[in-house]
């Protein structure tokens, strides 16, 4: 097995290439919160089939991968209030801020969009503060 940072770099290049495919092929930003978020809006987007297929791809890859590889150990909190508050904030905040770690963090930053750079610095800061606060309270 490669050291973590090499896997991280390879995985990152795959994520960036996947984003590039969507930009160059379909003229779309690979932002997961927007792709999913516009599927649960008042009006059905005209490209709903493409959006759904991107999500199907996200869901299907692990099933294929873990058919031949061992499922990794994943650690997530089992606190119901934390999971609900976290999910609500992530969903609401990503829609309000027009993007998340993929749309702003990867696609937007890669073209040096001022909005995406500000968004990324903002969520990195509040994310780090939240983790520090949770550690302090624990």
């Amino acid at each position: 097995m490669n050291p973590d940072w090499i896997n991280a770099l390879i995985g990152g290049l795959m994520i960036g290439t996947a984003s590039g495919m969507l930009i160059l092929g379909n003229g779309r930003i690979a932002g997961v919160s927007s792709i999913l978020g516009e599927l649960i809006a008042r009006t059905k987007p005209t490209d709903w089939a493409e959006r759904s297929l991107f999500i199907v791809g996200l869901l299907a890859a692990p099933l294929a991968y873990y058919a031949t590889n061992t499922v990794p150990e994943v650690t997530v909190t089992n606190s119901l209030p934390l999971l609900i508050a976290g999910g609500l904030a992530v969903g609401f905040g990503a829609r309000m801020g027009s993007g998340c770690t993929s749309g702003h963090g990867v696609c937007g930053n890669a073209r040096l969009s001022k909005r995406s750079i500000v968004a990324t610095l903002t969520f990195l800061t509040t994310g780090a503060l939240t983790v520090a606060a949770l550690n302090f309270l624990a």
Binding site: L36, G86, G97, S102, F123, G127
Partner: peptide, 21 residues
């Protein structure tokens, strides 16, 4: 709107360690 939304998103991200993708 951009800054407030991103700030809220970051709090949720830090609470659980998950983002949409």
């Amino acid at each position: 709107k951009l800054v407030s939304g991103s700030a809220i998103f970051g709090i949720g991200w830090g609470l659980v360690g998950l983002c949409p993708g």
